[in-house]
């Protein structure tokens, strides 16, 4: 896998979520995503960024533009040092929420991504990786 570009953005406020959306959109455009593909990864990024802020108490996201011919894509790694997720399987179910949302955040983001992984340790934090390619 060849990394074309890598950057890190903080997720500390609601404005940061908007910035993450913007950065994801720009990355997807650079990688030549169609409008639908752009919208999917941006939406997924927005969901996870909000989780990072609301449940993880803030954190950061690493945005990577990669190229592994014939694929070109965008990978986002969200990490926080929040309370972590005790039951990952349950958290990935549609409709599961510990907050006030619809509970579509994680499961929805997973459906919108080509690659999705979640690592979490209670008391240490959570790391969510999503990627989409064309």
């Amino acid at each position: 896998m060849a990394v074309v570009h890598r950057s890190v953005l903080p997720i500390r406020s609601q404005e940061d979520i908007v910035r993450v959306r913007k950065a994801t959109r720009e990355s997807a455009v650079v990688q030549g995503f169609s409008l639908v593909e752009q919208t999917k990864i941006v939406t997924a990024a927005s969901e996870i960024a909000r989780n990072t802020l609301d449940y993880g108490g803030g954190g950061e996201v690493e945005v990577t533009l990669f190229s592994e011919p014939p694929r070109r894509g965008v990978r986002l790694v969200f990490s926080d040092k929040g309370p972590g997720i005790a039951d990952i399987e349950q958290a990935l179910k549609d409709g599961f929420t510990s907050g006030s949302g619809l509970g579509l955040g994680l499961s929805g983001a997973k459906r919108l991504s080509n690659e999705f992984s979640l690592q979490s340790k209670v008391g240490e934090g959570t790391q969510v990786t999503i990627a989409r390619w064309r």
């Binding site: 639908v36 999917k40 459906r111």
Partner: peptide, 13 residues
């Protein structure tokens, strides 16, 4: 928009 509609459906909304 079409892209938004497709994404919303995929999201489950």
């Amino acid at each position: 928009q079409p892209a938004v509609a497709i994404t919303l459906v995929e999201l489950g909304l």
